[in-house]
Design a protein around this nucleic acid. Sequence first.
DNA 1: AGTAAAAATTGATTTCGATCAAGGGTTTTA
DNA 2: TAAAACCCTTGATCGAAATCAATTTTTACT
Lengths: 246, 246
Amino acid sequence: MNSPIRIQSCSNCGLHDMCLPLALTQPEMQQLDGIIKKSTPYRRNEAIFRQGDAFHSIYAVRAGMVKTTVVNARGEEQITGFYFPGELLGLNGLHENIYTGTATALETVSLCEIPYIKLDELSALLPELRRQMMRHMSQEIADEQDMMLVLAKTSAEERLGNFLLRLSQRFKRLGFSSTQFRLPMSRVDMGNYLGLAVETVSRTLTKLQRRGVIKIEGKEVTILDFGGLTCLNGNCDEEPEPLRIA
Amino acid sequence: MNSPIRIQSCSNCGLHDMCLPLALTQPEMQQLDGIIKKSTPYRRNEAIFRQGDAFHSIYAVRAGMVKTTVVNARGEEQITGFYFPGELLGLNGLHENIYTGTATALETVSLCEIPYIKLDELSALLPELRRQMMRHMSQEIADEQDMMLVLAKTSAEERLGNFLLRLSQRFKRLGFSSTQFRLPMSRVDMGNYLGLAVETVSRTLTKLQRRGVIKIEGKEVTILDFGGLTCLNGNCDEEPEPLRIA
DNA sequence: AGTAAAAATTGATTTCGATCAAGGGTTTTA
DNA sequence: TAAAACCCTTGATCGAAATCAATTTTTACT
């Protein structure tokens, strides 16, 4: 039913499958084991770290999905990202040694914990891992800038289309079907992330379904027409077909 | 008239004033000089790097202000940030060796260029500089997440209020007045950054002025009531005074 | 299994900000 | 110093999505 996405542990770094192909010697592997802790699993809705907590670790997702949120002074909450296996959590904690957001498990989640104080030690041992981490940070900056564009400039339909496409790509990268997958988050969460009311999310999904671009049954999504979705992002010449109401 | 904000070069790292207080020996300083290039000044509207260019360098702003933009497939452009002296440009280029955005000088700008291929060399020479860079990246991630919240959840008034406050803080950090400063960007740019139409920016600034929170004459801003602005961000108990039309 | 609680859908109405339109200012450039 | 290009402001209208409201479906719990 609600089984989390699970991937094999990376045979090179022991973190996850998405690692660089590092060529490690046996003693290096053992050293690594002493630094990186495999955490006990987190359950649905359990917090991994909270906004304002003292920063102590970066986490790599091994299985399951995680959301991160920030809260402003007025108490409004914004989901800032969904994290898949192979992605890193807590990168925004380094600059002032405080987590600037909260990470919550969307389902049963298992993680690797990399204590911050071991980071230099780790860097020395594995310079490639450090570079990898910087690439992850760079990726996150680029992704968030794209998200700013989405939030500032696009319609509800475009946002949902873009969102589904990006989910699809990530499932594909993990070796799962890119045309059929299970949404790990609620409609409320989608709306929160995309800056839309739940009602708008629901209506828009229905609209896309009527148009024959997707099929959606509860949390199960099937993408029927990638072209139609890509169109919404402007990657096509013609405008999408206007909805013809029966 | 249009003189860029200029700060003294950092006596430690030679990059800028905002650096960590690094204790460098004379030979270390000389090595650094060979790695970091002081670029020729860029003029208003000149591009420093463009979206899609091969990634080659990270830049530190020494004087003047810079904006960065991303463009989506439909050709819509979004300003993703304004960069002040002491801040780093190009951090989003590392992950796939391509700049994922464009950086443009808002006024005459001088920069330090740190070639990417020298980055490892530099890291070895100055581990503290590497940590500093990671902190900058972390800061950028956190800032952008805050911006996502602003774009997804707040009204035009709140966005402008938040924007002016953050500008004010940055001017203060550079040793300038936090209550009176010159906006380095046009109303169009503000609107673009904040996800608002120019007309809305203009109207909202007028409204804030009528309410006596700010005074604005062209590009010169005076903040008259910090409390009033902070209120807009939810950092106060009472709601802001509704505008009483004369 | 049965019930309570939570999540999702659909409809009606309202609202904030986009868009359209026009006029006045202010820098550039020749 | 003209004129051209751009920038800013204000007004009127319109529309996409928020909000309010009600029902149905799904999930969680005893």
